[in-house]
Design a protein around this nucleic acid. Structure first.
Lengths: 195, 195, 195, 195
DNA sequence: CATGAATGAGGCTTCATTCAT
DNA sequence: GATGAATGAAGCCTCATTCAT
């Protein structure tokens, strides 16, 4: 019947700790403690270290899990879409985990180098699709002939800027939900060729 | 006449501490300790707290001083210049204190709210000149008719993006020195109307 | 007939744990952990506590088993032999388990009092044979007329001294193998009467 | 007047911590904690780390201080004396700090290598005087012609053996006070030539 | 005002031990 | 009996802050 194996139990606990870490670090920032994570997860302090031998290890695991989740979602971004659809989809994805995304944006320097590399690799795929799509638009004469990598960097820069300053742009906390269309249409206006 | 008044003595010490804090926090990041600041300043650990009752207070003072310095420099930015000159001057200014600017960019959340407000106010002036200049360009039909605040946000976003990822764009550490012209010309290309 | 009874199974596991404990404690010293013992034994961490409710209990069991093994070997020491043969045999026996012997020599204070008593009792038998043999030599005028218990204590002291300082006397780790003859002949020279 | 400078104050505290460490480690053995030391010293837990950044560091400092103290005393041992006087003086010295000596005897493996080397160096001087004195006795035909280093090792071995087993030889805790003469006379009897 | 020794709350981590499966 | 995830007490160490000199 609904028997739960020990292995399931274990990964369930691991998941709870990661979930707790996610919400605690998201809320309190990098100064959150392992004890707070334990409490939020409803497990003993020691349990945290059974699953993650080190705070750095926990953060890394969190980054990896989030990176995978985000990567999977970003995977669905295809160069086939229109620019608008692409950007819209991109922001929708980031918007799903806005808080966590911001956390890692701010604390990326704390991650071990190899995790940072994973992070980058993930970013790269988005960049790849973005570039392909944009190149097509440029070739079609719909977008200005600016290096595509610069188009990508601009987009990311703008997106991050709005995120970092979300308290200005969306005091209630969810920038993208609020500013998505505006952000996209302004950006489009910027990059598109005039007729 | 070479007498040094007590008040001078005091403000001299205060300055040394701030200078030390600047270099220490810049080098070691937010994990630097007050003891390290004291050592770097060549004063006792206690002296730090004579002048700045609290770490937060020290950081705030540092932010304020830096903000003022930056503000003064930014003050010279005038809407009278060409866009290119303006942007060039802007990056030159930021480039002077690239490390410290990045430090506050990354750790702004640690500052007390009112300092954050100062920070913003300072930013505003730049924004004001930027907007005025850009509006002129728009009116003259040289720049696209995008809301000027979005032009400003884009510019800042791009600039910050290059800063945050300086290890990618300029491994040796000084992004603006290396990428200034490229960044500006690409940005210009983006915002300018085609002829 | 190859059936293994539950009792056999149990004692087999117990033996494996003790074996593992022996090698782990011998190698890593008293700071070795129960988890390491479990791993070395190829059993679960919990199993260790099924057989030995307490770390102290495990150490005691180890001491008892080693004591018995050593005792059995020492048992073969007979007062019938020549002094030289006796001492040679003694060192050969200790040399068999030099590492473990040293471990208990160093950590005897951690053992519960009653185990220490066992330890002593075991020692006693050697002392008994030693004394008997030595008395015979004294009576025969071949050995100095020193209290036999002092002769025993001297011998043990010297032996332990070489063991404790084996890194000086035999950097490769096996003192007795290297210094046995020298140690014995010097000691003999010391206690024997001149002709 | 009786003004106490800050430097004096500091070294006074350092001394109190070392004194406390001495008594605490002596009493409770190596399992004593830094917190216990702090309490015994009447200072805060943090203070211990102001003076000794690390537990290992504290133990080392303790070893060094004790080594110096012991070394200074052993320094007074001169090869000019009679064997009996020499050994008597030696045991008197060890007897002064019997507990601490035993602590380091048992836990020497915990000391960093260079401290262990100091320890050895100190021992060496005693060995030197011992050897010189003994050689004279051998040359004079009063002591058996055994290698002097073996005579030294025997003596140390015996002394340490009595120390390690002091609960057997002197249940009240002070072996040397109780057994000094007996130990010396037996040892002398052992090494001396019969007439 | 400057000093720097002292404080103590709080963080991360370890590990013997327990207990439900 | 065997398992191994979970526990939680306890240890070492850090560091902003205080205060007597």
């Amino acid at each position: 019947m609904a028997t739960i194996t020990r292995a399931e139990q274990k990964s369930e606990t691991r998941r709870r700790i990661l979930d707790a870490a996610e919400s605690v670090f998201t809320e309190k920032g990098i100064t959150a403690t392992t004890a707070e994570v334990a409490t939020a997860a409803g497990v003993s302090h020691g349990s945290v270290f059974v699953h993650f031998p080190t705070l750095a290890n926990l953060l890394t695991a969190l980054a990896v899990r989030f990176g995978t989740r985000l990567g999977d979602m970003l995977h669905t971004l295809s160069e086939g879409n229109s620019v608008e659809d692409f950007l819209y989809a991109h922001l929708s994805i980031l918007g799903e985990d806005e808080d966590l995304y911001l956390f890692f944006l701010r604390n990326r320097k704390l991650l071990p180098p190899d995790t940072a590399a994973d992070w980058l690799a993930m970013q790269s795929e988005t960049a790849f699709h973005f570039a392909k799509m944009m190149q097509r638009e440029i070739d079609a004469g719909r977008v200005k002939d600016v290096p595509v990598y610069f188009l990508f960097n601009s987009w990311m820069g703008i997106v991050h800027y709005y995120l970092e300053n979300r308290d200005l742009f969306a005091p209630e906390g969810n920038v993208f939900a609020r500013r998505k269309s505006e952000l996209i249409s302004s950006y489009l206006h910027l990059i598109q060729k005039e007729i």
